[in-house]
């Protein structure tokens, strides 16, 4: 416990570094999954191939990927870009299927009615299909967020700064409290990001929280409307 109290600034520093490595992959995988998910949903033949290939990305072990990426990208071995790219790939692997399913779950009645109103396909996608896919997209990105926060730690093996360094350092120097602090901080960070995502979801999708009118109240409202 003493170690933790003495090293609070270090833990804080590592947490911020961890956060800085986590946010870009979460945002990028969300953004990039939208066109890919749209493609998979729109053109059925592409769906099987696209989802399988992208899904397989998740099966690539993270450590070798982090070693290979600098060679492919021409970046330095300890460059944080590698982590961002690798985790974005994992994020996409998880998120594209969700995005495709989310877009596919939009009721065809509503899509057709939007078309009949005179939404162009482009406007309909942004103003109807995507918002209505929102709750499922949110569920997907929450999984990606938690997965990303946990995977960022792997970079520590290559010396990329994150809470993962507390694991490697703690193991090497046999400081149990340091390893433990790294774990707790990682989980706490994941929980905070998850909570923020839920909050964002509530703000941008207010209709999902609209309380349905109970039957008795509904009957009364109908009666009122009829009387007025």
């Amino acid at each position: 416990m003493n170690w933790v109290i003495e090293n609070l600034p270090l833990i804080g520093q590592r947490t911020l570094e961890h956060l800085a490595l986590s946010i870009p992959p979460i945002v990028l995988s969300f953004v990039l999954s939208v066109p890919l998910g749209w493609l998979a949903n729109r053109y059925r033949p592409s769906r099987g191939v696209l989802l399988t290939v992208l899904g397989l990305l998740y099966a690539v072990p993270s450590l070798p990927l982090l070693i290979v990426l600098p060679i492919i990208l021409g970046t330095g071995a300890r460059d944080s870009i590698n982590v961002v790219v690798a985790l974005t790939l994992y994020g996409i692997a998880l998120m594209v299927r969700t995005t495709s399913d989310a877009l596919g779950s939009v009721s065809s009645d509503i899509s057709q009615s939007a078309t009949a109103m005179g939404f162009s396909p482009w406007t309909r996608f942004w103003k109807v299909d995507l918002p209505l896919a929102g709750p499922v997209l949110l569920a997907g990105i929450r999984v990606v967020a938690v997965s990303t926060v946990s995977l960022v730690t792997v970079g520590a093996v290559l010396g990329i700064k994150s809470l993962g360094l507390l694991f490697t350092d703690g193991l090497q120097r046999n400081i149990v409290a340091e390893v433990f602090a790294g774990m707790v901080a990682t989980i706490a960070l994941a929980l905070v990001i998850d909570a923020v995502l839920v909050l964002i979801g509530r703000l941008v999708m207010p209709w999902t929280r609209a309380t349905r009118v109970a039957p008795t109240r509904r009957a009364r409202l109908t009666a009122e409307a009829a009387a007025s």
């Binding site: 009645d109 509503i110 109103m117 109807v128």
Partner: peptide, 13 residues
């Protein structure tokens, strides 16, 4: 104007 069964209203608006 177009009116359909089950109203087809946009649930998020």
């Amino acid at each position: 104007g177009y009116v359909m069964q089950n109203s087809g209203l946009l649930p998020h608006r």
